[in-house]
Write a protein that binds this DNA or RNA. Structure first.
Lengths: 208, 208
DNA sequence: GGGCGTATCAGCCAAATGGCTGAGAGACCA
DNA sequence: TGGTCTCTCAGCCATTTGGCTGATACGCCC
């Protein structure tokens, strides 16, 4: 039985070496290379074709994890990509899965969970940490929460801190209409005040 | 020459083992224990009195890093505390330094920088990563914008989306006082509404 | 043609928020 | 001792926001 070859991608040296040490305890998992950037990851994946790529999403300047996953898919490499990141923002999860990630793990996952995810990934099984899965599930289960294009537009201005009057001016609609849209947005987000809407919107979407 | 004893505190196993491996390459640095929570950290610090405590700020549920630092100071332990974290938010830096941290390192710091910080810490030298230092410098240059501890506390709840009444209840103060604090916060942040305050706070501080 | 979703607007009223002034208590420092 | 900072609270008033009901118009689909 050949060991599973793994490429680690993370811009933090300590995370790479920690993960490497952790995976080193498993005889059937073999870390063959490490990359500190998306660019390096692509080159190494091409060159070594590891079975699994374990990738952080946030990677400082340059190509981010999502973009790296997309590129990997394009250069029709057949390795499975596992996202291994600190935060479970809704937008990141959706984007990563969309880009072709096989799994989504949080950095505080138990070691066994990480091993299982890697073994599962090579067999085409998709694995995600419990909190991640529940978030994704909620998104799918609750189509009510999908904002209309206009609402999304308004929300994106709302989180800039604009008042109703300013929102109306910016979108060429009356304040009354602004209030209507806001009421719908609040209902969909499950909040009651604009402050809470801003807070949850930024957190849910990873917006900045 | 006795080696410098170090206690690692981070809720992520991979970070701990990576850092341990990294520090293990230095003969004069000796990792004597690891803790995954603030509570554990306090107990271990008491028991082992390491020379330096290297601590992450974000640590899941329970006591956060800042609180752990404060407690460490209180139980008049003489170990130097080095903050070792992913993000360089303004508020975190100020709060950590305020709580008594000797240094503030980012996780993507170079290994040499980390070693130097630990060696410096035992000699009472405070070390921080370049981006952190520049932020702190800006804060000092602009004393108007420094929030008082109470204001920072209020702000951190504000960005959760709480109303004035809820803020008052949570902090055991009247709504009138909440409004006073808010007015000061708005002035310091240069905004006029709570929505804008939330938006700029989250953007400026990288809060989540 | 009749629904359905989306976007637009109005008016009314209660509640929340923000701006203002003023003030007392405690801590810290020169 | 006096000055400064911080935290606390009060009252007043204008503005903003949120909840409600109801309405028109456009496009899409069956």
């Amino acid at each position: 039985m050949k060991p599973i070859t793994v490429l680690l991608v993370d811009d933090h040296l300590v995370v790479r070496s920690g993960l490497k040490a952790l995976l080193g305890t498993q005889p059937d998992i073999d870390v063959v290379a490490e990359a500190a950037s998306g660019e390096d990851a692509l080159a190494l994946a091409e060159q070594l074709s590891p079975a699994v790529v374990v990738m952080d999403l946030a990677m400082g300047p340059g190509m981010d994890g999502i973009e790296a996953i997309k590129q990997l898919r394009r250069q029709n490499a057949r390795q499975a990509v596992l996202v291994f990141t600190t935060y479970d923002s809704d937008a990141d999860i959706v984007r990563a899965v969309d880009a072709g990630a096989m799994g989504y793990l949080l950095k505080d996952a138990a070691p066994e969970e990480i091993f299982a995810a890697i073994r599962g990934a090579v067999q085409g099984k998709s694995v995600m940490s419990a909190p991640v899965a529940s978030r994704l599930f909620q998104q799918l289960r609750n189509p009510d929460e999908i904002l209309t294009p206009r609402e999304a537009e308004l929300l994106s201005l709302l989180i800039e801190g604009l008042s109703n009057r300013e929102l109306g001016r910016r979108l060429f609609i009356s304040e009354a209409t602004v209030k209507t849209h806001l009421a719908h947005i609040y209902a969909k987000l499950g909040v009651e005040t604009r402050a809470a809407a801003i807070a949850t919107a930024i957190r849910r979407e990873g917006m900045r």
